[in-house]
Design a protein around this nucleic acid. Structure first.
Length: 668
DNA sequence: GACTAACGTTTTTTT
DNA sequence: AACGTTAGTC
């Protein structure tokens, strides 16, 4: 552990942050200022100072961030010490807490965690059951209102809209009846246990004497309260973040946590990291000039440790076709001219819909590219289905997963039977599964439906017995179950393409496979379901594993960096998004653009179009009001026509773009 | 109960 | 344009 890290390799501010181990500390880490390095060094410093690893808690926002942090610290100190620390997300910390003590709140310890799609399923049911509303209300709308209420500490019944309040109460009762919690409940109940039980709270405070919270600008007020419960005197807490990069306000993040940190912990030491190692001066100057238009921020001026670099280009485009072509052509030319890798290029956009034209242009030119984000692995139908079966094998009384797969694959238990069973279960205050098992209920069904139900019950009960009584490997049982009911052929029938068929098959396989690995580690089915519910895992989230230029949303780009960045669609209505103007969140849109700009290391090009295809319809566009806020000093305003001349041939294009670098770029 | 056709919607995304 | 949802038909 001797050479864990060296103070010499850190700058003044970083050194101060790494050295300040005691008391409340807030590190304001601007983009590209070596935040991760500082935080990991600080924790390594703790270990070097003989603070036991077991007393260290680091909370992150995603599981990926948690494992990366553990790995980096492991590289600096011993693997053993890294393994002994607790590095996890707020949610998984609460799961641990609740598996131990949720019975104090009247839940059973084997509670299940509702994923988003579970919540939607439940809310859809409630909307049907409650009816009553003249307008059609979307499940997501209600759920987000409930979520915001929970995060603000408002009781479901006290929601402003009566209809929503009614739904919220019903939703909460439903969760309760199924012994289930949603993501917000994890935090809510975790905080409640700590607050109401001094013995539990003291135990945690004894256990975790040093708490670090990463990405602090993304915490909501409930998470702040949780931190306050976790951290007792003498408040050895360190929060790290950048209010200028707070872009998740729409899902409850409270910048106030950073802006008013002094209110939560007394006399914090506040350290600013402003020395930027990532970008050229031109890029940073432009970023600084934009973000200073936001009011009520912790002012930070990023300083470049590098040279001026090329000016930042703002290019006016006739339309989105030209925009895509321009970028694709320029990437081809640049790559050849200065020997770049495809991976050095990134195109950033506000909405996923903007990627289509770009993909097309890339494919035409055989430019390899990687798309980040899009569809979550856990939202894939076959994955959700198989997880629903897995959950039934733990608790068949969970209504949402049961109803989800009751007729998937088709087994002759359709909507009408499902409705009858649900109604019966409500009247008799029991679960849908219990209703299906009840001969009194099945006798009310027609002979065909009755047989189908009985076969279904036998199928699930049989599999459950093989796990519970015969102690067979749950992964084997699940695998056999899937084959027995011919799930794969059923889902394949609905596929249009071969690649889709293959994808479905792989989805099913990987769920079973990851369950098997879980079991091999000695964990049970329940903990597998917990992990799956809390896992963010995008299909191939590891950007590094994919090859090619990057196409990515501004949100997903946070934390990444690229030598050459194109930021497209700087149009009023897109960036800032029209919705933000209605909702009065233009500041956050400005931060979003700030995040985008600060992703660039060497070269940045921002584009806007005069017209753009939107929802299959051509719409006129105005330049973003943000463009006018940028300082001109390192800007180069130009147009598509200026660069291209009048409609050159492809050959001319190639030649032209080949020489473009020489014409435009002030190469250092 | 299963399949098809018309319809409406469309920011960002994690746990 | 493309997707999911819903209503209508066999």
């Amino acid at each position: 552990m001797a050479n864990a890290f060296s103070f010499d390799s850190l700058n003044q501010a970083q050194r101060e942050a790494v050295g300040a181990l005691d008391g409340p500390v807030m590190i304001l880490a601007g983009a590209g200022t070596g935040k991760t390095r500082t935080v990991t060094c600080r924790i390594a410093h703790m270990l070097e100072k003989r603070i036991p690893a077991s007393e260290i808690l680091a909370v992150t926002f995603t599981n990926k961030a948690a494992s990366e942090m553990r790995e980096r610290i492991g590289g600096m100190v011993s693997k053993k010490a890294a393994a002994a620390m607790t590095v996890c997300t707020f949610h998984s910390l609460c799961v641990r807490l609740l598996r131990g003590g949720i019975d104090r709140l009247g839940y059973k310890k084997n509670f299940s965690i509702c994923s988003h799609s579970d919540q939607v399923g439940m809310m859809k049911q409630l909307l049907v059951r409650k009816g009553g509303s003249d307008e059609k209300v979307k499940p997501d709308e209600v759920l987000s209102a409930i979520s915001k209420a929970k995060n603000k500490g408002i009781e479901p019944g006290d929601l402003e809209d009566d209809y929503f309040a009614n739904l919220a109460v019903a939703y909460q009762n439903e969760l309760r009846a199924q012994n289930a919690v949603d993501f917000d409940d994890l935090l809510l109940l975790g905080e409640k246990i700590l607050r109401e039980n001094p013995d539990v709270r003291d135990m945690f405070r004894q256990q975790y004497k040093r708490v670090t919270v990463d990405e602090f600008q993304d915490t909501n007020s409930l998470q702040m309260q949780l931190v306050q419960q976790l951290v007792g005197e003498p408040y050895h807490v360190c929060v790290v973040g950048d209010d200028d990069q707070s872009i998740y306000g729409w899902r409850g993040a409270e910048v106030a946590n950073i802006l008013q940190f002094e209110k939560f912990f007394p006399n914090p030491k506040i350290i600013r990291l402003e020395e930027n190692y990532r970008s050229t001066h031109a890029v940073l100057h432009t970023a600084n000039s934009l973000i200073k238009h936001n009011v009520g921020r912790r002012e930070k001026i990023l300083r470049s440790t590098r040279g001026n670099g090329d000016p930042v280009r703002i290019v006016a485009m006739p339309g989105d076709n030209e925009e895509a072509e321009f970028i694709a052509e320029e990437i081809m030319a640049e790559k050849g001219a200065i020997g770049r890798q495809w991976e050095d290029f990134a195109v950033l956009f506000r909405t996923n819909g903007q990627s289509r034209k770009l993909e097309l242009a890339f494919r035409e030119r055989k430019i390899p590219y990687r798309m980040v984000g899009a569809q979550s692995f856990y939202d894939r139908r076959e994955v959700r289905d198989i997880l629903a079966y897995a959950q039934l094998l733990v608790s068949p009384d969970a209504d949402v997963p049961l109803l989800r797969i009751l007729n998937a694959p088709n087994r002759g238990i359709g909507q009408s039977t499902a409705v009858l069973a649900t109604e019966w279960s409500r009247e008799h205050h029991e679960s849908v599964w219990q209703a299906l098992c009840d001969p009194e209920f099945t006798d009310t069904l027609g002979p065909k439906a009755r047989t189908s139900v009985q076969e279904f019950i036998a199928l699930i009960a049989g599999a459950k017995n093989r796990i519970d009584l015969e102690k067979q490997n749950p992964a084997d049982v699940l695998d056999a179950l899937i084959k027995e009911m011919e799930y794969l052929p059923w889902i394949e029938r609905a596929c249009k393409t071969d690649s889709e068929r293959q994808q479905r098959g792989e989805g099913i396989f990987s769920v079973v496979d990851s369950l098997r690995k879980h079991v091999e580690k000695g964990k049970n089915l329940q903990s597998f379901l917990d992990d799956s519910a809390l896992a963010s895992d995008r299909e191939d989230d590891d950007l590094e594993k994919k090859q090619g230029a990057t196409l990515i949303t501004l949100h997903a780009s946070k934390g990444l960096e690229f030598p050459i960045v194109f930021l497209v669609g700087l149009e009023e209505g897109f960036l800032p998004h029209s919705r933000s103007i209605v909702e009065g969140t233009k500041d956050e849109e400005r931060r979003l653009l700030y995040v985008g700009i600060t992703r660039a290391q060497d070269q940045l090009t921002m584009t806007y179009c005069s017209k753009r295809l939107k929802w299959g319809q051509e719409t006129g566009c105005q330049p973003s009001s943000f463009i006018g806020e940028l300082d001109d000093e390192h800007l180069n305003h130009t147009t598509y026509d200026d660069i291209l001349g009048a409609a050159p041939s492809t050959d001319e294009l190639d030649n032209f773009f080949g020489g473009l670098k020489g014409l435009l770029g002030d190469v250092e």
